[in-house]
Design a protein around this nucleic acid. Sequence first.
DNA 1: CAAAAATTTTAATCTTGATTAAAATAATGC
DNA 2: GCATTATTTTAATCAAGATTAAAATTTTTG
Lengths: 202, 202
Amino acid sequence: MVKIAEETRFELQRHRMLKAAATCFNQKGYSGTSLKDVANHLGLTDAALYYYVRNKEELVYQCYLRGAELGKEAMDRGRGEGTNGFGQALLYIRYHVEVMVGERGPVAIMSEIPSLKKPHRDEILKVSRQHSIEFEKVLTRGIEDGSIGECNVRMTGNAIMGAINWIPKWFHGDAETAQTVLAEFPQLLTRCLLPVGRCDGD
Amino acid sequence: MVKIAEETRFELQRHRMLKAAATCFNQKGYSGTSLKDVANHLGLTDAALYYYVRNKEELVYQCYLRGAELGKEAMDRGRGEGTNGFGQALLYIRYHVEVMVGERGPVAIMSEIPSLKKPHRDEILKVSRQHSIEFEKVLTRGIEDGSIGECNVRMTGNAIMGAINWIPKWFHGDAETAQTVLAEFPQLLTRCLLPVGRCDGD
DNA sequence: CAAAAATTTTAATCTTGATTAAAATAATGC
DNA sequence: GCATTATTTTAATCAAGATTAAAATTTTTG
């Protein structure tokens, strides 16, 4: 008989665990992170984690799933609030960056997808691909409504998402930098979407 | 008595090993890659790798070092050949992307830097930071000579390098895509450097 | 071709951290 | 407060893959 209150407690603790795990994975790498490291962050014993997760593989999976959900949420908000393709892209990027550097993070870099077990791997890959597709739709819409310049949406999507997904590599949690990132990144990344004439450079 | 011919043979094999390792790490993740996997790529036995490398940690280190060297080479070429800041940035990006998708690659994503032993980790971090600094210098020069628009060079550098470093996440070696990447990425990424008026978006 | 050096394999061992089961503790419902 | 359920710990065990040493093979040299 699981009561609401207990479900909440469980979920709270599980959520703390996922954030701790993401922190560890980003800071110490996957192989450098033992379950004990994650548990220590929570003031627990490694064995306690098995109450929340079947094994380490599932911990990684849940971490990644959480990251994917946060990304999707940012995408949904951006698409919902933007009034044209460019606006949707800008807002999505803003919200996603907010997640990456804000209190809701950290989000674990998905470097170990290939070593997930097939069902988990398939699910993460599916949701990642879907995310890319959604973003490409936004870009396509922007091109059609004229708010975004002609471009290869696949490559543009890859580039922008790469820049976002890489953030945990160099951002280490100080609030000041977070402000800078939030102020600069969305504008920066959407500049390459502007419908200005091309320039062949030097 | 190590003769030139043997040094070459050793170096050739070692180099093949590093490429095989980078391939495995990118495809299967770090934890999903055993020394046996890498050895299999070379038609060797796992134990044979120990002739080239003290242990797995050093294999990762050498992989990363090689990636860093290729990046530096691209930077040097770009800086040497470009005639202004924008040109240097564009050429650097072109050369680096060329490495990422071309025959000289693959380059392993550096997801396990934190689990390297301190001396190795320090060296990789040092060379990575130096790389960032060099790129920021290029951007600064471009801003000064007017070829690049005002921007936060730190963030701009982070964004562009993130997009490049993320390439192995979605590029899986087919020649056709490689062509597309080469054709699109440099132009795409340098668009956000153009000295056009800002746009506050939607 | 014979000797020496270089490279690889075979066949163990070793290590580390994941995992498990049972016991202990804490929280909750009545 | 007691019984029940939820959560955590203690104390082992386990497994997988890294590592090693010695032997075998291949390559090079003279």
